[in-house]
Design a protein around this nucleic acid. Sequence first.
DNA 1: CTGAAAGCGCTTACAG
DNA 2: CTGAAAGCGCTTACAG
Lengths: 358, 358
Amino acid sequence: MALARSGPNLSRIANSLGVSVATVSNALSGKGRVSAELAEKIRSRAAELGYVPSQAGRALRTGRSGVLGLVLPDIANPLFPNIAQAIEFAASAAGYGVLIADSRGDTAMQMEAINRLIERDVDGMVIVPRRGTRIADIGCPVAVIDSPSTPGNTVAADHWHAGRQIGDHLVALGHERVVILANNPDSNVQNDRVGGIRSALTPHMKAEVIWAEKVELNGGRGCTLGLAEKARQGFTAFAAVSDLQALRALTELQQAGIGVPDCASVTGFDDLIWSPVVTPALTTMRMDTTAIAEIAVSALLDAIAERPMVLSARPAAKTYGNVVSAPTSKVPMQLIIRQSSGRAPSGNTNLAEGEHAK
Amino acid sequence: MALARSGPNLSRIANSLGVSVATVSNALSGKGRVSAELAEKIRSRAAELGYVPSQAGRALRTGRSGVLGLVLPDIANPLFPNIAQAIEFAASAAGYGVLIADSRGDTAMQMEAINRLIERDVDGMVIVPRRGTRIADIGCPVAVIDSPSTPGNTVAADHWHAGRQIGDHLVALGHERVVILANNPDSNVQNDRVGGIRSALTPHMKAEVIWAEKVELNGGRGCTLGLAEKARQGFTAFAAVSDLQALRALTELQQAGIGVPDCASVTGFDDLIWSPVVTPALTTMRMDTTAIAEIAVSALLDAIAERPMVLSARPAAKTYGNVVSAPTSKVPMQLIIRQSSGRAPSGNTNLAEGEHAK
DNA sequence: CTGAAAGCGCTTACAG
DNA sequence: CTGAAAGCGCTTACAG
């Protein structure tokens, strides 16, 4: 005695109409040649019965689950929810479901997360890899979202050029000394952004990169980045490579009585939720996550469609061929100018005034 | 000719060992009585071949997909990623996969999202409903995460009591006039929090609620909440019902030259990612998302286990019985005291000094 | 302790 | 244009 779903199935429709399940299946899928009137009768009866096709049955027969996996390094990190949302949107528009797997923690967890998805028969997966990780051939179509600097094919925003745009913006504003705020030197994305910013600066300008992660280690008790000190040294632009760092910079400067944007410009990256809400609102760069998700998903769907349909004589495990993921593509980012970046102060007078407040 | 998966299956293991698939299945699941040595031989051969059970086959046979659905109003909202992560963690610890569905937009989208999950045969789902929505009986076990004030059974943080804790904290600090910052008056969660805060204030204190959503509508151009004005009127505590509002308050006050925590205390809710990072770090309330997720998931698993196994004589669609979700449970929140809340200023002297800066 | 058989719901090549 | 049949991979009662 086997379990059954609680809804009606094909044979129920077939019986109620005195036709075969094959015909019902054909009518509903529009594939087989079924007379117009019969097809219509079948469709309306199906609707009437509230028929919902069983994915399990279909999956078993077709070898396709209709589900895509999404592997994220850390869902709780504010960088990823936007991507997750865009992927979910693109996937469900294409009729696919999205199974999530958080690879929080180390690289081993990432492999486990990937395996969990494989066990669930996903047809393909989108992976945002952990820093410094390379995704091996895992026997199913994969689209990697990461910096274009990452080896292998990826879909990504053009982080370097986005940095360039920020740099250009700061140059146009007349800044001469800029602090670039980053977090992790192992991140390809961050390095791209830093590189892009630097490339825009003219030779006579002075730039300095602060890697926040290191500062905290050295800094002992103080959680400050020492930005007020930098401002005193004549730095007027603080270009963070993430909105979180920008927020840190903004509040640290404000707390020290250094007015933004009067005495210093602050810019961020990614247009995260708080950017437009803080005072002054953050100038930042926005990723086109919709475009990135669409490219990743459609590359996956192509790969799935092209996949050789393995027939009954099955190869041993792990002998799938290499799977082609999306060709590397860079999606441009958009500069969002808000109040936090202003014209560079002409002298140090404003600065002095700002400091006075503290 | 039907499609096949590319990995080995039960019968491949069975053939290679000259036993029946039934025995292999029994050995691997540990259910049937199989001799210890045979079982061991089967297990090692399975491992050797890299056998991965087909969820599709199992699902078809058992009527269980091993997948839970997660419906969120808006994944990109910083409130939800933590919950999503906790649910994913709890579910995968129990051997379940998580299919996400974003009901972004209106209530109709929420229904569509739920339907997509049902079509994918989820065994149950966790729903964080859109504001003001009630989840009808949808024919599969459901756990609702929402305010305890929401009608029906829910799992939730004890938002009211958390508000109470914030209120107690402000009272202990000696504040006399407090501005409560909220966003949406239709939110049960926010109302609970506001109510909790108010309940802690002593009769002689003065409290005023600002609903930010309305302010924006009225305020025309200015994005400010008018907090500096409030400070001038003698309000020294700004208790936001979300960290985003708290951040807004913090930067608005700082920008106006009103020192935090010297001249004003700012508190938030939810301990979102930026709370410990801004200067001064935000005092806030933290939800125990792990506990909430565990309660929701285990309630779901119980309901799934108790579900009558529908046999071949299947009822018509939509005649499932009512499904019991988790009994309402309130999980306490934890007060995180950071620098942004300080002792109330004794007079208006500090305030004047702060204002002077602008 | 082990195996043959049925059947979950579906799709597809083939026969009529 | 329509239907009978096979089979995707698995599990479970039952027989031996």
